[in-house]
Design a binder for these strands. Sequence first.
DNA 1: ATGGCTATTATGTCTGCACATATTCCAAAG
DNA 2: CTTTGGAATATGTGCAGACATAATAGCCAT
Lengths: 226, 226
Amino acid sequence: MSGWEDIRREVLARIRSRAWPLGALIPTEATLAQEFGVARATVNRALSELARSGVLERKRKAGTRVAALPVRKATLDIPVIRAEVEARGEAYSLRLLRCNLAQPPLPVLARLGQDVGDMLHVETLHLASGRGFVLEDRWLNPAILPTPLPDFAAISANEWLVAHISYASGDIRFCAEAASDAAAAALGVAQGSAVFVTERCTWAPDAPITWVRLIHAPGYRLSTVL
Amino acid sequence: MSGWEDIRREVLARIRSRAWPLGALIPTEATLAQEFGVARATVNRALSELARSGVLERKRKAGTRVAALPVRKATLDIPVIRAEVEARGEAYSLRLLRCNLAQPPLPVLARLGQDVGDMLHVETLHLASGRGFVLEDRWLNPAILPTPLPDFAAISANEWLVAHISYASGDIRFCAEAASDAAAAALGVAQGSAVFVTERCTWAPDAPITWVRLIHAPGYRLSTVL
DNA sequence: ATGGCTATTATGTCTGCACATATTCCAAAG
DNA sequence: CTTTGGAATATGTGCAGACATAATAGCCAT
């Protein structure tokens, strides 16, 4: 009856009830440990979880305070596109539209660093039950690829990367755009349709790996629980 | 040189190098603890973090295995709109467009549960340096509101909620849409522009709290690091 | 006053141990 | 052959104590 989840709940209850107001300092771990009759490590676990989810802010020596302007944190799952299609109960297939070395456009260079020369430009159309689902426009650093190149017509660049270069660091951005003529044609939707766009940039510790832009067919939704 | 972050790094390195292939079982905590010369708790911490980020899958008795189809997990910060505007160095202001009791439309009812009757419909335009930034279309459960009602022209419903009803559970969805005529007019953009839409639904343990739809002005980007 | 050094203090992490809990696996009973 | 009921086992969590680290607060000398 006094595991770290119970402590977590109790602390949350005190915050909600305003017993500990927004922005206020709360008692130290040692004090709470004594009050609840548990070890300090247990309190630490509970408070650390709350800090991770944005409810508390902790600083050494300064103590723990209730976040003044709580920033809700949501975790997004970013699955491989094939898994995403299959999770909807649809049949996955892909069409490789392009795969050649070329000079990346300036915005891509700017994000990855100017020191890279030609990159592998791979364009893939991902289909769900034969209908356009996502158009993937990707630039790959050839230095990280094996020779001969993987067959991106059989396994998408998206999937090949998570299986072989997995767990790099990077950033991701989401936005809404009007579909370009080319994208609309590939996806089979009206020109200028509002499309959901995911833009990702990933890095190995030393060199850039890839820049990718996913143009999702209209109706796509990214969702998660809070 | 052997904190849990070092263990985490080493494990990640072994996964990347395919010393531990995708889908394979890895040694037990006890074994790794001995190999690295640390306590089991330290290994546990490292592996737990990796499981949380989707790299490993752990089950009692079954052991720990490398995730076969890794699902990248990204955490999104969902700040209060005012904070978001101010973080861009712009001046925040708001205009309350509507605030009245009404029967919610069917889609809203469906998501919140049919048992609620009339709800408070609040529409707010959030401005950054005087330009439309977000149009907030919100339905509130009146049962959770105090009397008299908060002055939503002074503090946005968005901000009032995080400060007073904070830390409920809920879900969130993002999509791209063409701006409706009304929304386009309010935001001051062309009709049919592609807009980024956030839709959120939050619940108290027992009753629904609110359903909200945020229509972001074109150019809005949601971003995070992986 | 003021700038910098030091002591203090709250959190962060580690250890070694223990017990709880969920699952698997195997063996015995039907 | 199937089902059921343990035993075995890997992870999950707890405890008490210790040291590490960061950041504040106060003190001292200039």
